[in-house]
Simulated scan of single mutants.
Amino acid sequence: MNNLVSIITPNYNSEKFISETINSVLNQTYKNWEMIIVDDVSTDKSIDIITFFCKQDSRIQLHQLSDNSGAAIARNKAISLAKGTFIAFLDSDDLWLPKKLEFQLDFMLKNNYSLSYTSYEIINEEGNSTNKTIKCKDKLDYNRMLYSNEIGCLTAMYNKDVLGKIFMPKIRKRQDYGLWLKVLKSEKYAFGLATVLAQYRDRSQSISNNKVEMLKWNWNLYKNVENLSYFRATYYTLCNVINKLLK
């Protein structure tokens, strides 16, 4: 496999985690990648840390936004700069296991899949296991995804040569969910690789831990990005709540 993978990483004040995130990419068994880090006007020392890694390895690139604009703008900037055949996503506090790219690329190429995702495990803010694993579904279509976002952003990868460069909707939160829905409007399915290949860091201050905010942003996505009716937007928002409670 000689396909270049472009890794999309937005950064904002992640000095506590960014070294570990970058090292998880450096430790990949698959070596043909570029890591495009777009900083959203950080005020901590994360820029210094990223710059150090850029000097050590030319595959790591740092680009800085002039205004604090949110993760969607940062990710879309990175996508616009990407040169790879495949686009993958890794936030600045999450981690990949060493064979993530190797296994997932093989899975996609052998089966001719355009969008894939994997299972992942949850770690706490200190990086310790929580003994919780999110097992991915075998496959997902647009209608199934409306009920709940079943694709962990840190596990997702799409084939740019097949789909073109697909960008995230310019909303402050849930933009990754919007991208998967956008892809699934043209692709019949996204496919899951059951192997655990990534670690999601559960942080107490993250949007995913603010349930009320999550509801607002989900409803906004359904109503204003997916253009669903008021009734359908409300219905799928409630379905999301139920799915979260059942997990």
Score class of each variant (00 low, 15 high):
Tyr147Pro: 01
Asp44Pro: 04
Lys77Phe: 15
Ser229Glu: 11
Lys139Trp: 15
Asn13Ala: 02
Ala82Val: 06
Gln64Tyr: 11
Leu62Met: 07
Leu215Gly: 11
Leu163Thr: 05
Asn209Met: 15
Asp93Cys: 12
Asn218Trp: 13
Glu15Asn: 10
Leu197Ala: 06
Trp96Leu: 09
Leu101Asn: 01
Ala82Ser: 12
Asp106Ser: 13
Asn131Leu: 09
Val162Gln: 06
Arg144Leu: 10
Leu81Trp: 04
Phe53Gly: 02
Ile37Trp: 00
Lys211Trp: 05
Leu101Arg: 00
Ile37His: 01
Asn11Glu: 07
Thr85Tyr: 07
Gly152Glu: 14
Ser14Glu: 09
Ser229Phe: 11
Phe231Tyr: 11
Leu238Phe: 15
Arg174Asn: 09
Val196Ala: 02
Thr155Gly: 04
Leu62Phe: 04
Tyr189Phe: 03
Ile60His: 00
Asn112Gln: 09
Asn227Asp: 13
Lys185Asn: 11
Gly192Ile: 02
Ser129Gly: 11
Asn23Ile: 11
Lys139Leu: 09
Leu26Lys: 11
Thr9Arg: 12
Lys83Gln: 06
Lys100Leu: 14
Asp67Ile: 11
Gly70Thr: 14
Asn3Met: 05
Gln175Pro: 01
Ser116Thr: 15
Lys185Pro: 03
Leu245Glu: 08
Asn2Met: 12
Pro169Ile: 14
Thr155Trp: 03
Ser148Ala: 09
Asp94Phe: 02
Asn11Phe: 00
